[in-house]
Computed example of a mutant assay.
Amino acid sequence: MSSIMDSVNQRTQLVGQNRLELLLFRLNGKQRFGINVFKVREVLQCPPLTQIPRLNALVRGIAHIRGQTISIIDLSLATGGRKIENLENGFIIIAEYNRSVQGFLVGSVERIINTNWDAILPPPKGTGKASYLTAVTEVEDELIEILDVEKILNEISPLKTDISQDLAATLDVKSSAGKIIFIADDSSVARNQVKKALTALGLEIETAKNGQEALTRLKELASETGDVTDKVGILVSDIEMPVMDGYTLTAEIKNNPELARLRVVLHTSLSGVFNQAMVKKVGADDFIAKFHPDELATAVEKWLGSDSKEK
């Protein structure tokens, strides 16, 4: 199975063109799910798991993999299904989210598909707040479900979202009074985390669920004065979003005269040197790995206080 991942590093050219690759897997039934290849470090047959006291009920045990102790989360249990019984035939997807490494137990792993972000759509209406879907797509006339992993992880180990009192006492964004902080993220949990962290700045906050929705709204705001920065102080955007990803959104903004002065901070659970290179390529102003409220608030304050004309 490791051979599936061998060519991942050769595929980085896909990103920035609103393209991605999904690793397909199944849990207990016939339904197929997908995870962005760039979140995945490794795929391996489920190793022996060690049980330790007081583990979260969704964590089947811990595994020692390449010198690291990793919690193994049963994705079927985590999404309300029955646990994966046959561990010997199961697989572990080792992935990195929010500055930490997790192992996701799945029933089987299939293959990698190449697709466009515009083929990745928001989940159907009516799925409700309890849904663990962040997006869906269609492959070979079959619906592929993409899970809101950030929601799952937050339920297992909730992240701190408030900024520290010491930082709150020093924040000063008076020069941006009356302007909007715009947040784009497809995960409802992530949007709320970012919103709560930035509330201390005292500015109005507006949100969008994907890059296309954000771009449309920013153009509407820009049309009122001819320059979006008259209304919006900064955009904090996820990278992985259905319809239009954060890289493409940033490039669209920087190539539009009415939007180009807008500061863009990419805020994502994707990490690594690769993303830093992409930030420069598309013209983003900053890259912040999820999720540390003080770091995010500090970066937003910094860019709110800067003049885009200096770029």
Rank of each mutant, 00 (worst) to 15 (best):
M1T: 14
S7H: 13
N9F: 08
R11Q: 15
Q13S: 15
Q17F: 14
R19M: 14
E21K: 07
E21M: 12
L27W: 00
K30V: 10
L55Q: 14
R66Q: 15
I73D: 06
L75V: 03
L77H: 08
L77P: 08
I84S: 02
L87F: 09
I94T: 09
N98L: 04
I113T: 03
T115I: 07
W117N: 10
L121N: 06
P124K: 04
K125Q: 12
T127W: 01
G128P: 00
K129C: 06
V139W: 13
I144S: 00
E150F: 05
I152M: 04
I156Q: 11
S157L: 06
Q165N: 14
T170R: 13
I180A: 04
I181F: 01
I181V: 09
F182D: 01
A190E: 04
A197C: 11
T207L: 10
T207A: 09
K209L: 07
A214Q: 02
R217Y: 09
E224H: 12
V228C: 12
L235E: 01
S237Y: 01
D238R: 06
I239V: 12
D245Q: 06
T248V: 08
K254V: 03
L259Y: 01
R261A: 10
L262S: 06
L266R: 06
S269I: 09
V282S: 07
G283Y: 00
E295L: 13
L296S: 09
A297R: 01
K309Y: 10
K309I: 12
